[in-house]
Design a protein around this nucleic acid. Structure first.
Length: 583
RNA sequence: CGGGGAGUAGCGCAGCUUGGUUAGCGCGCAUGCUUUGGGAGCAUGAGGCCGCGGGUUCGAAUCCCGCCUCCCCGACCA
């Protein structure tokens, strides 16, 4: 491959585009890789298209390696497929919808579970046909409420989606594991720093699911990492380490105290510390009881649920929702309190909940033998030294408390801290949701139909391009990893002598050796401009054919390290070929 | 959907408060000469629905009313 700058469809910009905020957006636009066509919609210009294809190529190779077979399904889909799975409704406003001339509803595919499922149903019918993995690399469409950050979160984007079809759960686990390994190889080859975090399955429906997050400060997803290991997880998935139980014998007796005007944890702690009880209390010594109500799918009645957690922690709504899923959850309103007079707002304790058959779940830190200050179930009274396992026994534990920086890591190594990431890949064990919706069965060896099971796996190819730039740039421009770079070497000819001719000759020789090359053969462009453009574009290796040519040398530069070296002009092709060969 | 900001040449911006020459600057683009190892100089030139619609006025990029669009933060979301 040989691209000549004199004819390449490329215009670089000196200034950042006004609408760009994040580095990848600025640099991809300035470098002439992409141009905005509409909000959240981008055109890929020649260099951008090459990079995009390079990423897609890596994905394709690794998908093929695990036996995936590539197909290409339409992006334009009739409504009926999405009706069957209720996603025409569930996807809501995020679905791009359109109507054809006959008035029939269509949509632009946001993901393709339905069509893949039907494809397999139509072709395969025997257990002997399975397992099978199909994938495509194609445009997806989602009418995001707020597209942002350029390529990072668009409304039209390039995505690899694959689907596995298996006859049983064991097969699904294998297909899932194959994808997991393939994704690790893909993101390693692409030079990304990433974490694999377990995820909740969300609207897709299903069970086991993991996200691949490229760690960058501009990422939209927060997750937690450990200082002491490579543990990483979504906040929703963090399991609180359970402390050892304490002996109940020898604990002081629980005593009710009159604590006027202490409806909040803060006021309570202040009061206790002024009450002369002979010790100092903190919010962490109190047990806060939060009342919510949950409703299980298909039921109309709400059930009240009491949640006990240390008073220094707030309830994290997302963790609570994930913990009760698939039930929905809401706070109690005034009517609920009125209907349940045993709930004394601000002074709720475990006793009244348990006596009134309200299900009571506590934070995992509330283990037998721990003693707490908590509500005494009547106004202006709290009980001190209420011991778990002696004075009350919860119905179980729940992960609803916020996770904080400095909390111990669930794997026992180090403490947690917050990190941000870009979701570049997602793998799901979907199970039978789609197979059930479309009744996809395979005949088993016994001649009886067996419902198949599926997995769904995505990689945001265009997003990966942006994520690479987010992780790999400096103040001058992009630093492409060689595997995705638009070229291996950028040959720059400067000066008014024979430099440009020599640059073109070297470029031709390099191309003949299989090296991908961009040559800056523009005439009348000053060296500074050419150097600046080369640095902005970010090709890993540069060869400068300039003033040294008179003494028979050219300059070899490494974009990432900035190292420069004079090399005799007649050996530079060998040198570059060797550099490219070793990666 | 809530909050904030912005629509003027391909890109980045000034002009608007206080209406009044032919709407301006930088980059880019074209032509010529000079220049050629770090975003060159001089000269000449092309390029505008001042977001759209209405109004006020002798006169509107500028003032008033309505609308549209885009960007950022949040909510939501893969």
């Amino acid at each position: 491959m040989l691209l000549r700058m004199s004819t390449l469809f490329l215009r670089t910009l000196r200034e950042d585009p006004a609408d760009a905020e994040v580095p990848s957006h600025k640099l991809l636009v300035r470098g002439g890789y992409v141009r905005r066509a509409a909000p959240g919609v981008y055109s890929w210009l020649p260099l951008g298209k090459i990079v995009l294809e390079n990423v897609a190529g890596v994905v394709r190779e690794e998908m093929n390696r695990i036996g995936g077979q590539e197909v290409l399904l339409p992006a334009l889909l009739p409504r009926e497929y999405y009706e069957a799975t209720n996603r025409w409704v569930e996807y809501g406003d995020n679905l791009f919808r359109l109507v054809d001339r006959k008035g029939a509803d269509y949509l632009l595919g946001p993901t393709h579970e339905e069509l893949f499922t039907l494809l397999v149903k139509g072709e395969y019918s025997s257990y002997k046909d399975f397992p099978v993995i199909l994938y495509q690399i194609q445009e997806k469409f989602r009418d995001e409420a707020r597209p942002r950050a350029g390529i990072l979160r668009g409304r039209e984007f390039h995505m690899k989606d694959s689907y596995s079809f298996d006859i049983d759960d064991e097969g699904l686990r294998r297909s899932y594991e194959l994808h997991r390994e393939a994704y690790i190889r893909i993101f390693d080859r692409l030079g990304l720093r990433y974490a694999i975090v377990s995820a909740t399955s969300g609207a897709m429906g299903g069970s086991a699911s993991e996200e691949f997050l490229a760690e960058t400060p501009t990422g939209e997803d927060t997750f937690v990492r450990s200082t002491g290991s490579d543990y990483a997880a979504n906040v929703e998935a963090v399991r609180t380490p359970v402390p050892a139980s304490l002996p109940i014998e020898g604990q002081p007796e629980a005593r009710v105290h009159h604590t006027p005007n202490t409806p909040t944890i803060e006021s309570l702690v202040d009061f206790l510390n002024g009450a002369g009880l002979g010790r100092t209390f903190t919010a962490a010594d109190t047990l806060k009881n939060v009342l919510v109500k949950i409703r299980r799918p298909g039921e109309t009645e709400w059930e009240i649920l009491g949640i006990g957690l240390p008073g220094d922690r707030e309830v994290d709504t997302k963790r609570l929702e994930a913990a009760v899923e698939p039930a929905e959850v809401a706070l109690l309103d005034e009517a609920d309190f009125a209907a349940n007079p045993f709930l004394v707002k601000g002074y709720i304790g475990p006793r009244a909940l348990l006596d009134n058959k309200v299900r009571y779940l506590v934070d995992p830190r509330v283990v037998p033998g721990t003693r707490w200050v908590t509500g005494a179930d009547r106004p202006d009274h709290h009980v001190v030294d209420l011991v778990c396992g002696r004075d009350f026994t919860p119905d179980g534990t729940i992960e609803a408390a916020e996770v904080r920086e400095g909390d111990p890591s669930p794997d026992g190594e180090g403490t947690l801290y917050a990190a941000r990431g870009i979701e570049i890949g997602h793998i799901f064990q979907l199970g039978r949701k789609y197979a059930d919706a479309f009744e996809v069965d395979a005949l088993g060896p016994d001649g009886k139909p067996k419902r198949i099971t599926m997995g769904s796996y995505g990689i945001g190819v265009s997003r990966v391009v942006a994520a690479i730039v987010e992780q790999s740039h400096d103040d001058k421009g992009i630093l492409w990893p060689r595997e995705v770079a638009p070229a291996d070497v950028h040959v720059v000819g400067t000066g008014k002598g024979e430099q440009i001719e020599v640059a073109l000759r070297l470029a031709g020789e390099l191309e003949a050796r299989g090296v991908r090359v961009i040559v800056d053969d523009r005439k009348g462009v000053s060296p500074g401009v050419k150097f600046t453009d080369a640095e902005l574009l970010g090709v890993p290796t540069a060869v400068i054919v300039g003033k040294g040519l008179a003494s028979g040398v050219v300059e070899l530069r490494d974009r990432a390290t900035g190292e420069r070296e004079e090399v005799p002009v007649d050996t530079v092709v060998d040198r570059v070929a060797a550099i490219v060969a070793e990666g």
